[in-house]
């Protein structure tokens, strides 16, 4: 595969498929992370959700509607808090893309920002709360910064994926202020937030698809 300059519906579908593969491969790790500070189901829930998203991918729909369909499946099948959060992220991103047949780097940046805003509207988390926002917010910012520097879609996506991975690492010393982990107070320190970790995987999948390495 070669790098793509814009995303069509097939690219977006491949992104969801690759994200599902990465989540499936890391299911046990995500669940272990969640067992440390959460309720120990994140990996299996998200694996189920993304499998459902892959099964729900429409045959003939523009990128935006493809993401909305994936998001709806994630909401319906995931079962934990990550269902509404990831589902909202995908659906808001899909809505931001409208019915465009091709999504360029700038349009995808708008969708990524919309996904972040959707997650924050729903979960009310801010950066530093030790949640997926700690990966998604720096990812959106890094994507926009790369875009401003003239990077192509692959460069922007790589910047977002790298920032998400760093953001996930940065949750380790944080004390959780949302979700079950927040009940632990200082005992939530020292563990990576599983939602931030899985957000890193989903953006890594994007970087692989647009970079031609997926």
């Amino acid at each position: 595969m070669t790098a793509v300059e814009s995303l069509n519906a097939a690219d977006v579908a491949n992104w969801i498929r690759r994200a599902a593969e990465l989540v499936a491969a890391d299911t046990e790790r995500l669940t272990r992370l969640d067992a440390a500070i959460g309720d120990g189901d994140h990996g299996h829930n998200l694996d189920r959700g993304f499998r459902a998203a892959v099964a729900a991918l429409p045959d003939d729909a523009p990128p935006g509607r493809t993401l909305i369909a994936a998001g709806r499946a994630v909401v319906s099948k995931t079962g934990g808090a990550s269902g509404p959060l990831y589902g909202t992220a995908l659906r808001r991103a899909g809505k931001a893309l409208g019915d465009a047949a091709d999504v360029d780097a700038a349009a995808f940046g708008t969708a990524l920002r919309a996904a972040l805003e959707g997650v924050q509207d729903l979960g009310k988390a801010v950066e530093g709360d030790k949640t997926m926002v700690d990966a998604l917010a720096p990812a959106a910012a890094a994507y926009e910064a790369a875009l401003g520097d003239g990077a192509d879609l692959a460069g922007c996506a790589r910047a977002a994926a790298d920032a998400a991975a760093r953001g996930a690492e940065a949750t380790i010393p944080m004390q959780a202020r949302k979700g079950r982990a927040s009940y632990l107070g200082p005992r939530s320190v020292g563990h990576m937030d599983p939602g931030a970790c899985s957000t890193g995987l989903v953006l890594r999948a994007l970087a692989e698809i647009v970079g031609g390495t997926g």
């Binding site: 909401v75 079962g79 808090a81 990550s82 509404p84 909202t88 729903l122």
Partner: peptide, 12 residues
């Protein structure tokens, strides 16, 4: 948790 998020999402 997810009960609250699901409720908010349904209302939206």
């Amino acid at each position: 948790g997810s009960s609250v998020l699901t409720a908010r999402m349904l209302i939206e």
